[in-house]
């Protein structure tokens, strides 16, 4: 008897518990999301404002290895001189096989690329020698390297010091 009662009581308890649980589930509740959304919007605004969108890019340069004293002999016929004056003017001239060079021409960035593309396709061994005036602006240098990179030619160039004769060549195109 007792065991039966117990069993009954147990089932009743379980039943009651179940009812309670069901009741709770049915209750349902509402969380007010507004403050949560407010904070998230603040965070979002902060990250949008601080993120840097235009990440700088880099222009890879490889200088030749070796001593200052090692000299490389090149055929002047393959050499193209690009000289940049103090004012930022570009003088372009082609070397001749006998060691002299042609009359320099004054070019702008667009023409520079076209000339280099023309000569570069004719002569696959073309070497560009860049001579910058020390007082010229770094911006000019990057623009010229950019044009060389853009041109569809072999990128074979070297930097060289500007000397007295170069200045005279530049004077011929107006300094």
């Amino acid at each position: 008897m007792a065991s039966v009662e117990q069993a009954d009581g147990g089932s009743e308890q379980r039943g009651r518990k179940k009812n309670k649980w069901q009741k709770r589930k049915r209750l349902g509740f509402h969380i007010d999301m507004t403050p949560y959304v407010d904070v998230i919007m603040l965070l979002l605004t902060f990250f949008i404002m601080t993120s840097t969108l235009n990440q700088p890019q880099v222009m890879q340069i490889n200088l030749p290895k070796g001593d200052e004293n090692t000299t490389v002999k090149v055929d002047m016929g393959n050499v193209v001189f690009i000289r940049i004056s103090e004012k930022g003017n570009i003088g372009l001239s082609k070397g001749k096989s006998d060691g002299t060079e042609e009359q320099p021409i004054k070019v702008n960035y667009d023409q520079l690329r076209q000339y280099l593309e023309g000569w570069g396709t004719q002569n696959k061994d073309m070497i560009m020698i860049l001579k910058f005036h020390r007082k010229a602006k770094y911006d000019t240098m990057i623009s010229i390297l950019d044009e060389i990179n853009r041109a569809a030619i072999e990128k074979r160039y070297s930097f060289s010091k500007m000397e007295e004769p170069d200045l005279r060549v530049l004077e011929a195109i107006g300094g």
């Binding site: 700088p56 880099v58 222009m59 340069i61 200088l63 290895k65 667009d110």
Partner: peptide, 16 residues
């Protein structure tokens, strides 16, 4: 002998 120049991406072609 290996290094890189940092530049900004050019958007317009006005430099040409």
């Amino acid at each position: 002998t290996r290094f890189a120049f940092v530049t900004d991406l050019e958007i317009d072609e006005s430099k040409e």
